[in-house]
Design a protein around this nucleic acid. Structure first.
Length: 410
RNA sequence: GUGGACGUAGUUCAGCUGGUAGAGCACCUGUUUGUGGCACAGGUUGUCGCGGGUUCGAGCCCCGUCGUCCACCCCA
């Protein structure tokens, strides 16, 4: 037996239905916010991710599905969505148009990690990217959109926000932080020591308690923002207050990807284990430029579909469609014209095996059908069908040609 | 990449100090040979993850391997 590869998963039945439900719900909301669907390749040049995600992240360093294709190109399965979307945006020269552009996408992402709860090697994200809008109003609007999506899905969450600063205030802060960290180097854990070199901001959200207690006195970016970043962040929190969206300012909140600046946010759930981030995003005003486009402000987010799968409450499934069956083999074929006609408007299941009456009734029940339509010897002789509404329990026999549900059942 | 737990019927699990497997659910068939969801009766299903080893004998012990899960790491 051949099983799926490690960290890859098949989705069937209620799981695939829930998956669809999530995507459909998110799509509906995104469209209402003016987003258009964009589809980009799963395979991209490795250079794209090196330049966008950044070499400091483990994603690029060791988690990418990277290989040489048959034409000798250095390629990667995308580990996240934003880089590809921005690349497409620049490829289409949309950066040269004054129009603002908004895109939503969903699809598989690949990271070669050790699988655990909420972390697969092939996982799916739904995300949105808004280009050309520098106003913090857009950051706020995106947060309200995610809230709407989670509300529609019946998911509870906690919202964390922070500001990562911009090229004006971030580099100085970074230097100060590194200086501070280097001072207490000996007392920090080995992971943090590594991070001082690779990604000092990452030290801030270390889970080690000793590190955290040492960090209480560390310089905080939020207190060292430039005027513009500071005023934007204040505006954002004021808007959230006004909209009655509760949030926590988490000065240790960091985005893992290098391209973020200014607003950063994360939606977390306490109900799904250690991989608690169910959506994350923020502003990335410099990424378009990094990827050879004209400087274009942008803000976006992604939802981890697998991570919210078990949190989603599906609407109750009601009896739906028609089950058709026959008691004698000759009668089975008499069902086909009828089935074809009814399939123009509703779901029809035809049982090809002739079976006893009772066994058909059980079959109809199991198929969760609303109606059972059966033909036995008597019906075949008389040219009629017998049918029953499994919910109201009304039943009737009518001539085949006259058969419609509307006419015969309320 | 690091640390830990676990892999037994379709599924959830039981299996005591080693003697070649069991339960619930699910499924199938019946309970007047034309009335579903309930109840009752009966029935089917396993190379006990895979490969070695120890032993007269292994689902139980040992080693390896693959996989799952949890945490770290990373991140959605």
């Amino acid at each position: 037996m051949i099983n799926p590869l490690r960290g890859m998963k098949d989705l069937t039945f209620e799981e695939s239905q829930r998956f669809n439900f999530i995507v459909n719900t998110a799509t509906t909301v995104a469209k209402r916010y003016g987003y258009n669907y964009i589809e980009t390749p799963i395979l991209e040049e490795t250079a794209l991710f090196k330049r966008s995600v950044g070499e400091s992240s483990d994603i690029v360093g060791k988690e990418m599905y990277q290989f040489e294709d048959k034409g000798g190109n250095d390629v990667c399965m995308r580990p996240e969505g934003t880089a590809g979307i921005v690349r497409a945006f620049v490829s289409a020269k949309l950066d040269r148009q004054p129009m603002k552009q908004k895109f939503y996408y969903y699809g598989p992402m690949f990271r070669y990690e050790r699988p655990q709860k909420g972390r697969l090697r092939e996982f799916h994200q739904f995300g949105c990217e808004s280009f050309g809008e520098a106003s913090v109003y857009e950051d706020f609007t995106i947060i309200t959109m995610i809230k709407q999506i989670f509300d529609a899905l019946g998911i509870g969450f906690e919202l964390l926000v922070n500001s990562l600063g911009c090229p004006t205030c971030m580099p100085t802060y970074r230097e100060n932080l590194v200086a501070y960290l280097t001072n207490i180097k000996e007392e920090l854990c080995s992971d943090c020591n590594r991070r001082i070199e690779t990604n000092p901001i990452r030290v801030l959200d270390c889970k080690n308690e000793t590190c955290q207690s040492l960090l209480t006195a560390s310089p905080k970016l939020i207190e060292n923002l430039c005027e513009e970043c500071d005023s934007d962040f204040k505006k954002l929190t004021a808007l959230l207050d006004k909209a009655d969206i509760s949030y926590t300012v988490d000065t240790n909140l960091v985005r893992g990807l290098d391209y973020y600046s200014k607003t950063a946010f994360e939606f977390v759930s306490s109900e799904i284990g250690s991989q608690s981030a169910i959506a994350g995003g923020g502003r990335y005003d410099r990424l378009v430029e990094f990827l050879d486009g004209k400087p274009t402000p942008a803000v976006g987010f992604a939802i981890g579909i697998e991570r919210i799968m078990e949190l989603v409450k599906m609407p109750e499934t009601k009896r739906e469609g028609i089950y058709m069956g026959a008691m004698t083999q000759e009668a089975v074929e008499a069902l086909f014209p009828l089935a074809e006609q009814k399939r123009k408007e509703s779901k029809v299941t035809v049982e090809y095996n002739s079976k006893g009456f009772k066994s058909h009734m059980k079959g109809a029940d199991k198929a969760n059908a609303r109606y059972a339509v059966l033909i036995g010897e008597d019906e075949l002789k008389e040219g009629t069908v017998w049918f029953k509404d499994l919910e109201s329990k009304e039943e009737k026999s009518v001539l085949l040609g006259e058969f419609t549900f509307k006419m015969h059942l309320p």
